[in-house]
Design a protein around this nucleic acid. Structure first.
Lengths: 134, 134
DNA sequence: AAAAAATGTTACAAGCATGTCCAATATCAT
DNA sequence: ATGATATTGGACATGCTTGTAACATTTTTT
């Protein structure tokens, strides 16, 4: 079943925010919350998960915060989403019930995973609105 | 948020079963249940939804059943899934919070909808396992 | 007319997801 | 050392989803 909810989308937003921290300096939840409009409490949970999946590292205490554990071009969106929601698409036993449907859903899974295999760093490159030069 | 759960997958399975009814004769829940391994009770709900979305028609009473309301090559998987789960992918306000992310998710939505715009009739053509001739 | 065979509708239990909140722990600054 | 500042972990409320089950309604058969 495909599963991308707000949680995964928020995670991508948080990671995207982190990827913009100059020189990958630590960012605090407070800052990320201000940038993404995600509630402080919910970010706590999300970042905790991202940490468990080794996508970010943290330092505690005053002046602490989170930062990317790897450069943004070594992280793909799929990882981020799956860190929060588990396997993006998993077809279980019996839901196909025919060979045709099993093959179909397996193919879908493949295509979906491809679709989400974009690097975090490519977000800006690919989706930045066109800007005129002077 | 992307949302395809067992319900949508079951719906595709049910529709696929119906598309194999010779001459589009009515099939009963009992038969569909036997073919797809989906419980009778749950199929009732699912078929009821499919009917509300005008994807199937039904006749009640003894010798009743369900059949496709249109030929299988006029029905796409996306419709079937969305009949059960609502819009396949909808990005709401604020979850992007930046232009880049909004553009990204909008693009994803587009690509996903394309991915699921396969005709019901194409399932067999595209995913039938290869068979050797004699 | 009555029984049998289907769909149609609704209520409900159990589990999962979303999001809030707080206490515990760790770190920095004075 | 002490207080301020952050993360960490978990408890918890609320609502949605999944799936079951029972009952109502409609149609056919005898």
């Amino acid at each position: 079943m495909v599963n991308i909810s707000t949680k995964g989308i928020y995670a991508v937003a948080a990671m995207h925010a982190l990827s913009h921290s100059p020189n990958n300096r630590s960012m605090q939840i407070k800052e990320i919350s201000a940038m993404t409009q995600i509630s402080h409490g919910y970010l706590e949970q999300i970042l905790s998960q991202l940490k468990k999946s080794s996508l970010v590292t943290s330092t505690r205490g005053a002046k602490g915060g989170y930062k990317l554990s790897r450069p943004a071009n070594k992280i793909i969106i799929l990882e981020v989403v799956e860190a929060l929601e588990g396997e993006l698409f998993s077809v279980h036993e019996n839901v196909g019930a025919t060979v045709v449907l099993e093959a179909f859903w397996a193919d879908m899974q493949d295509k979906l995973r491809n679709l989400f295999s974009l690097k975090l760093s490519e977000l800006d490159q690919a989706y930045q609105p066109f800007c005129y030069d002077i």
